[in-house]
Write a protein that binds this DNA or RNA. Structure first.
Length: 112
DNA sequence: CCGATGACAAGCA
DNA sequence: ATGCTTGCCATCG
């Protein structure tokens, strides 16, 4: 994978994440697939880790794993920041997991 | 080069 | 449903 491809990949991830509607959420795997890299879910996580969501205006908190679980909460300033952000957008989180995940889940293919 | 690790995911017992 | 295994790819030691 060349440097350019890597840059494009990160950029595509950020662009797509920015398009996630308020009150909805998306999984790493879906994002990876949507931008043409079906098996790069882990790279999406890496991209989120470096995205600097505060200054770049990227709603990284709306990205969870395929089960609707907040696997990346430790990467925010405080461990509960991610959950608070989501709850402030109307989502319900219980035991580190989004409730009604099937309803909340945003489909980049259908709804973009 | 090899092995371990990580904001992951799918398959299977 | 839970736990384990495998596939994935960049980064480190």
């Amino acid at each position: 994978m060349t440097e350019k491809e890597k840059e494009d990949f990160y950029y595509s991830v950020y662009e797509l994440v920015k398009h996630i509607p308020l009150g909805r959420a998306c999984s790493y795997g879906m994002i990876a697939k949507a931008i043409g890299f079906p098996n790069h879910s882990r790279m999406v996580g890496k991209a989120m880790n470096e995205c600097n969501s505060q200054t770049n205006n990227i709603p990284a908190h709306r990205v969870v794993n395929s089960q609707g679980k907040l696997s990346g909460r430790e990467a925010f300033e405080n461990a509960n920041t991610m959950q608070l952000l989501l709850e402030s957008e109307g989502l319900i989180i219980h035991n580190n997991q989004i409730q009604n995940w099937k309803e909340i889940r945003w489909n980049p293919f259908k709804e973009l």
